[in-house]
């Protein structure tokens, strides 16, 4: 059975800590080890920061919806009503080119196997992030 939880927060950066807390809690329920949980928390934070920065252009009065689905995989869906993302233009900087910015996408892609925008969504964006279970994900302490 797929378990599900969702939160809606204002598009204000001060709510990113709330998103991180819920993400970590959901990753814990999925049984992820602390290290992986931190990676997932960072990736979801980066995706939501991008919503504030690019979809809402810094407008703090909008909404961000974050949904978590726990089944065989760990899935996070992030919805906004802002400016449409152009997935073909989303690219992290070359890591050897040291300059501010361009790291967030790397943090998301290294953690999630699927990073996909819903093309059918008419208004705003729906970003789907899926991490399939990996051996390293397991919280061995919890199992023992």
């Amino acid at each position: 059975m797929k378990e599900y939880a969702a939160i809606t927060v204002p598009s204000n950066p001060k709510y990113l800590s709330v998103i991180r807390s819920v993400t970590a809690a959901m990753a814990g329920l999925y049984g992820m080890a602390d290290r992986v949980r931190d990676d997932v928390k960072l990736a979801v934070d980066e995706a939501c920061s991008n919503v504030i920065k690019y979809a809402y252009r810094g407008d703090t009065g909008k909404k961000i919806v974050v949904k978590f689905f726990i089944a065989k995989a760990f899935e996070v869906v992030i919805e906004d009503s802002g400016i449409k993302a152009r997935p073909e233009c989303i690219e992290g900087r070359n890591l050897d080119d040291v300059r501010p910015g361009g790291l967030g996408v790397h943090f998301i892609r290294r953690t999630f196997d699927v990073f996909a925008f819903d093309k059918e969504r008419k208004k705003g964006n729906r970003l789907r992030l899926i991490r399939h279970r990996r051996e390293e994900d397991e919280d061995r302490d919890r199992r023992e």
Partner: peptide, 16 residues
């Protein structure tokens, strides 16, 4: 306890 890409970018800018 935590740093994201905006924090890292701040330090890269400072270093530059």
């Amino acid at each position: 306890s935590y740093i994201d890409s905006s924090g890292i970018a701040t330090f890269v800018e400072g270093l530059k």
